[in-house]
Computed example of a mutant assay.
Amino acid sequence: MQLGVHGLNTNATLDPAITTQLARRAEELGYTSWWASDHVVLPSPRTPLSPMAPTDPLLDPLTHLAYVAAVTERIELGTGILILPQRNPLVLAKQAASLDVLSGGRLLLGVAAGFLEAEMTAVGVPFKERGRRTDEYIDAMTALWTEERPAFEGRYTSFRDVDAHPRPVRPGGPRILVGGHSPAAFRRAVARGHGWIGSGDSPESLATHLAGLKQAAAEIDRPARLGPLEITFAHVDPSTLDAQAIGRYAALGLDRLLLYPAPLQNPADILAFLEERAPGF
């Protein structure tokens, strides 16, 4: 099981010097991936579903990851997750390919449908359409990355007689990880994702999601080109992640466990957290 770092494009780590220090140290310690979260806007005043206050600073994930790519050499760069229906799929495909090329093929593109209606409305996307748009946009980006003469005809996006280069470094484009904890998200991960990405506060919550993914796999055909479904999970409570919990995650067959030190407000505390839980600690 690999260990990654999640959520450090916000709050205490906005300063570029701190980001550089933490990202380089994470790479030195053996963490294999660095993940950034996404919200274009947040409800104001804060609503019960909102994960952050509207005044909490949050850097754009692709911009943040491009900076991290420039100050590191090996660590993979993940969006965890990017809210896909809020983005134009052709523009995002170009941005993702560019980041993948500049980082030497290190991009992991985590996407999901989103869950904040106020945010979706503010960017002009009908909330009830978010799932269908997510499915279609994944297919459209894949066509642009992989087809010799790209073409796509959908309800929300259509194109032909166009092309976009450079193509991503990885054949077939960046690995796509589909996020979400609903039955629809599980089915989307099985049908369209190289992997699934979720979050929670315990191995028990992961076990519940794994059961949902198993049910989806029994209902949905998985394209052979995607290979085995890779499982990535972010543990969101830094106070409860110890060696025993990490061992329980590994026993569940988790491919990648993401540590989430973002609630810590002092960069020195974040660094200590990463050093204490580094691979092999």
Rank of each mutant, 00 (worst) to 15 (best):
R133D: 06
A243G: 15
E275P: 01
D135L: 05
K94A: 15
P45G: 13
A12V: 08
L144N: 01
P43H: 10
Y249C: 03
Q244Y: 10
T20C: 11
G131A: 15
L92N: 01
L271I: 10
P54Y: 03
G193T: 06
R188T: 04
L92I: 08
K94Q: 15
P61W: 04
R167W: 08
R130C: 11
V236C: 10
W34Y: 15
D38K: 01
S158M: 12
R222S: 07
A93R: 00
G104F: 11
P61D: 08
G280W: 11
V41F: 06
L271Y: 03
L90D: 04
A272P: 01
F186N: 04
A268K: 12
I220G: 06
A113C: 05
L271V: 07
W196A: 05
L107M: 11
T232H: 03
P85W: 02
K214M: 09
L8T: 00
I197R: 01
D221M: 11
D38V: 02
Y249L: 04
I18N: 03
A268F: 06
A118H: 07
L22Q: 00
S158N: 11
A23D: 05
V101S: 07
V169P: 00
E147K: 14
L42M: 12
L102M: 15
P57S: 10
L226P: 05
D237V: 13
A251N: 06
E129H: 10
M1P: 01
S239Q: 14
M120G: 03
A272E: 14
T47F: 10
L29I: 12
E28N: 07
L271S: 07
I75M: 03
T240V: 12
L116I: 06
R133F: 09
P43D: 10
P45S: 13
L84T: 00
S205Y: 10
E204T: 11
S202G: 12
R87K: 14
T142M: 09
L274S: 00
D100S: 14
I246N: 00
A251Y: 04
T134P: 01
H235W: 08
D161F: 07
W34A: 02
F115A: 08
G131S: 12
P43F: 09
T72V: 10
G247C: 06
P238G: 04
N88G: 10
